[in-house]
Design a protein around this nucleic acid. Sequence first.
DNA 1: CCTAGTACCTTGTATAACAGAGTACCTTCT
DNA 2: AGAAGGTACTCTGTTATACAAGGTACTAGG
Lengths: 115, 115
Amino acid sequence: MNIENAQIQMRKGILEFCILHIISRGEVYATNMLEELTAAHMMVVEGTLYPILTRLKNAGLVEYKWVESPSGPPRKYYSLTPTGFESLDKLRETWHELATSTNQIINHTQLTGQS
Amino acid sequence: MNIENAQIQMRKGILEFCILHIISRGEVYATNMLEELTAAHMMVVEGTLYPILTRLKNAGLVEYKWVESPSGPPRKYYSLTPTGFESLDKLRETWHELATSTNQIINHTQLTGQS
DNA sequence: CCTAGTACCTTGTATAACAGAGTACCTTCT
DNA sequence: AGAAGGTACTCTGTTATACAAGGTACTAGG
């Protein structure tokens, strides 16, 4: 119940960061991203991914171009804008700080947890 | 704008986890926690912490007892229940998995990012 | 009394993920 | 042609959450 929720919350915060990272590697479209995120055990579904992509585009962090598919409807291939790369750097920094802070709190536990 | 939001989102997900950790170390009351979280650079305010504590209590993860203060109103000293410790273990596991997945995605970038 | 400080609580608002249903395009088969 | 099935993108409604801001209550000191 509550714990699953907390686990979901953890993932949430990192999602945008991971998505930006994936796009930064090269042009991809939504289904590619879903595959990568699933492979990395970040359970994400369409209904979550698409709104994020729209948000990132409106914020000017990503852009896309339509590309014909060899089979099926055309695809939106996303890439990072210069602003997007800057933002990614900031988020990377935040991630490291956060990981450090968290590990600090966690390790603290084990030290003082011993009576 | 958008980036600050993403940074806030990252912190959010880890908050409950950190709070449980802090409580697991020994009995503390809200102001103690705020100090610790601030020291670890997790910006949290009262209006965020109290609802979380209430939620954790309703979920049966923490319990508290009133203790008189040497100066001022009485304090609620929180401690973890057995269920709380179990949940903490699960969250710790989730945290490690998530950190691993994220680092996997990040490192992937740097490898393929080199042209 | 009255003020100041500490501790806890509550209400309203904005944001975000998710489920689920929907639209549009392309290919293949009859 | 027309129908069926798959792929890709979109939208709406629900729920959960952090945060800001204001509020209540208890204690100590002038």
